[in-house]
């Protein structure tokens, strides 16, 4: 025993022991349920609907993985996490994967020992202010009070942005999006800053969305994506390729409408490989042959999920922008299924 006696180690021994057990895929299959970490509530990304069922853009990823692994898109236990609790929940094994608009950064990937399996939304940090303030640029925010969710990358970007522009601000740290909304609407802060998609989603729930503007500056790159624990590569592959299957499905023109037709066999060998009528991709992942078909059947392909939850026809109203397929000038690019 090199280290001196430390109290409280007991609490962590259990946590650490849980994390060390290998084979998340087997655990999920044995449990018959996927534990998926999501936000405590961000409309369009993850929030319970009127019937208490979780729905949203991040939720759809959880459902697709559950469908790929277990064949049932409802076999998901959604665990709401805050910006502060999400990593501990994942590291301790409380959740199998985290789909909570989490930014892929070097230190989270390498130092915090997580594995980002891809990007499901290319985002950037923005600022929202009430229109009546008459602010048109983030650089005019000298001396403003800024509401910020604590424990996020946005907190660090904010400090860097104001510092590099040599202007001052007063941070008001907030735990959840709902509290931030309350403080912002009451005028306890002038500005709310988070990922631009989150701002749009939050603004969509206001009584008067038109009274608030999102400033043009996007001050950071925020590639948001699902993540798993580092070291369990089989499970990481399952989540990564479930996400890729959704993206590839859009590119290949597979939609929930024509899915059963395409699953009967097509002229395109890549579609056949993806949907399991040719080759053994499912077996290689340790899943059934129709894993990708189930994943796509859950909520449709990437484009359908986007349009349904956060697209331009929804209250959130986000354009595809960077999140269009590479063939349409966006960044979405699924590696080949071969």
């Amino acid at each position: 025993m090199k280290k001196s006696v430390i109290l409280g180690a007991m609490t962590f021994a259990g946590l650490a022991a849980g994390a060390a057990s290998a084979g998340t895929l087997d655990d999920v299959k044995a449990r018959g349920k996927l534990n998926c970490g999501v936000t405590t509530g961000l409309v369009g990304f993850a929030a319970p609907n009127a019937n208490g069922e979780w729905e949203g853009f991040d939720v759809a990823v959880c459902r697709a993985v559950a469908a790929a692994v277990l064949g049932d898109s409802n076999a998901v236990e959604f665990v709401p996490t805050t910006g502060k609790t999400r990593f501990t929940a994942l590291a301790s094994g409380e959740i199998d994967m985290l789909a909570r608009n989490t930014t892929w950064t070097f230190s989270r990937d390498v130092d915090l020992k997580f594995e980002f399996v891809g990007v499901n939304y290319y985002d950037g940090q923005g600022f929202m202010v009430p229109k009546e303030l008459g602010v048109s640029s983030a650089k005019e925010l000298d001396g403003a009070t800024v509401c910020i969710q604590t424990g996020t990358t946005t907190e660090l970007n904010l400090a860097d942005f104001f510092r590099s522009n040599n202007i001052s601000y007063e941070p008001v740290p907030i735990e959840t999006n709902a509290e931030a909304q309350q403080q912002y609407l009451a005028g306890a802060c002038d500005v709310y800053t988070t990922d631009a998609s989150g701002l749009a989603a939050t603004r969509a729930t206001f009584d008067d969305p038109a009274g608030h503007v999102i400033l043009p500056e996007i001050i950071s790159k925020e590639p948001l994506g699902p993540l798993v624990r580092h070291g369990d590569h089989e499970w990481g592959d399952v989540v990564r390729w479930s996400l890729n299957a959704l993206v590839a499905a859009e590119e290949l023109g597979i939609t929930s409408a024509n899915l059963s037709e395409m699953a009967a066999g097509t002229e395109n060998p890549e579609i056949n490989r993806l949907l399991g009528t040719e080759g053994t991709l499912g077996e290689m992942l340790g899943l059934s042959a129709d894993w990708a078909k189930n994943a796509i059947a859950a909520q449709g392909n990437y484009g359908e999920i986007f349009a349904k939850n956060i697209g331009e026809d929804t209250p959130v109203g986000l354009a595809r922008g960077l999140n269009a397929q590479w063939t349409e000038g966006g960044l979405l690019y699924a590696p080949p299924f071969r």
């Binding site: 006696v5 021994a13 660090l156």
Partner: peptide
């Protein structure tokens, strides 16, 4: 318990280390 914690942390690749204290915090405090 302590041994279990330390070996599990080592297995996770996160041995106990207080070096982060001298790194810049990068966040503001009001």
């Amino acid at each position: 318990l302590i041994n279990n914690t330390l070996s599990n942390l080592a297995a996770l690749g996160k041995p106990i280390d207080f070096g982060f204290f001298s790194e810049p915090a990068s966040y503001d405090i009001n």
